[in-house]
């Protein structure tokens, strides 16, 4: 068994109006990977390829040591997948769905399923058609979680949920990680969710992976520097700085490869560094997408 739960190598897929460039992605076992990117960036395509739902044009996909899509039947015993378009039977109760999944998957954990019912505030007797959007999402997640799969793949699990439901789901996902043998891949627009619960972050934009790395290292590399620049002084172009905006004597520089020496470099050029600020993932998201698009167009 490899240490990677997911390994994509040179995976590409061409559609008429969208192309997934040859992407490479590694997810170590025992980690939560947050997949972020704008609408239409390729998050769902990536997820569907690694689930074997969409077949790649080129490249290797390995999930839990099995090649996809060839070995998807064997792999899926250990994968739990939930997305918004997951179909539940409207006329049936949640309890019916639970027994159905239980009859298929030997790993179903009855006690855990009961705990989840309580935590998520849903009842087994409820029919699916009577559930609110949030309850449906939680029901679908419950059906996946109670199987205790080795790999959870969740496409936008918190989209459209109220703050309480979102919180319940994030809690449950971090609780899953108490078991170090389990892995989660989830996509989200909600950068705050990704910042809070993921161990690693992957950025996708326009079918390309821009960054994929350890979250702590990633957040540390991005900084915003506030500078005071006397008139007549040119701000030097420094390595690690991806953008700078100057208005009069004040300037804001964004670093995506910050090193402790960077402020000194500005100081010795005659600028004064007023502050070095951390950036939230949301701020990084916006800065990163803008920057990478400029690079592609240049």
């Amino acid at each position: 068994m490899t240490d990677l739960a997911v390994k994509l190598d040179g995976v590409g897929k061409k559609y008429r109006f969208f192309q997934l460039e040859k992407i490479c992605l590694k997810i170590p076992r025992g980690t939560i990977m947050g997949l972020i990117g704008p609408n239409g960036a390729g998050k769902s395509t990536t997820i569907r390829i690694l689930m074997g739902l969409v077949h790649q044009d080129c490249g290797d996909v390995q999930v839990l040591g099995r090649r996809m899509p060839a070995e998807q039947v064997a792999a899926k015993w250990d994968i739990g997948f939930a997305s918004e378009d997951m179909r539940l039977y409207d006329g049936m109760t949640l309890g019916w769905h639970m027994s159905f999944i239980q009859s298929i998957y030997p790993t179903w954990d009855t006690a855990y399923a009961q705990v989840l019912l309580k935590r998520f505030g849903v009842r087994a007797e409820q029919k699916i058609k009577g559930l609110s959007h949030g309850q449906r999402v939680k029901a679908a997640l419950l059906l996946v979680l109670a199987r205790r799969p080795k790999l959870l793949v969740l496409d936008e699990p918190t989209t459209g949920l109220d703050p309480v439901a979102r919180h319940e789901i994030l809690r449950e996902l971090t609780a899953v990680m108490e078991d170090e043998d389990r892995t989660i891949l989830f996509s989200s627009h909600h950068t705050q969710d990704v910042e809070q619960i993921s161990d690693r972050i992957t950025f996708i934009d326009r079918g390309r992976i821009i960054d994929s790395m350890d979250k702590e290292i990633y957040l540390d590399r991005w900084k915003r520097l506030r500078l005071e620049v006397p008139s007549g002084i040119e701000i030097p172009a420094l390595p690690g700085i991806i953008g700078i905006k100057r208005t009069g004597r004040l300037a804001v520089a964004i670093a995506n490869a910050f090193v402790p020496d960077l402020p000194n470099a500005y100081e010795s050029s005659g600028a004064r560094v007023q502050a070095v600020e951390d950036m939230t993932l949301e701020e990084i998201f916006v800065a990163n997408v803008e920057h990478s698009r400029e690079e592609v167009e240049a």
């Binding site: 025992g30 980690t31 939560i32 919180h167 994030l170 809690r171 971090t174 609780a175 990680m177 108490e178 809070q196 619960i197 993921s198 161990d199 690693r200 350890d214 979250k215 702590e216």
Partner: peptide
Amino acid sequence: AADAGVSVI
């Protein structure tokens, strides 16, 4: 991490 609802890393 599970108690605080944050990532292991």
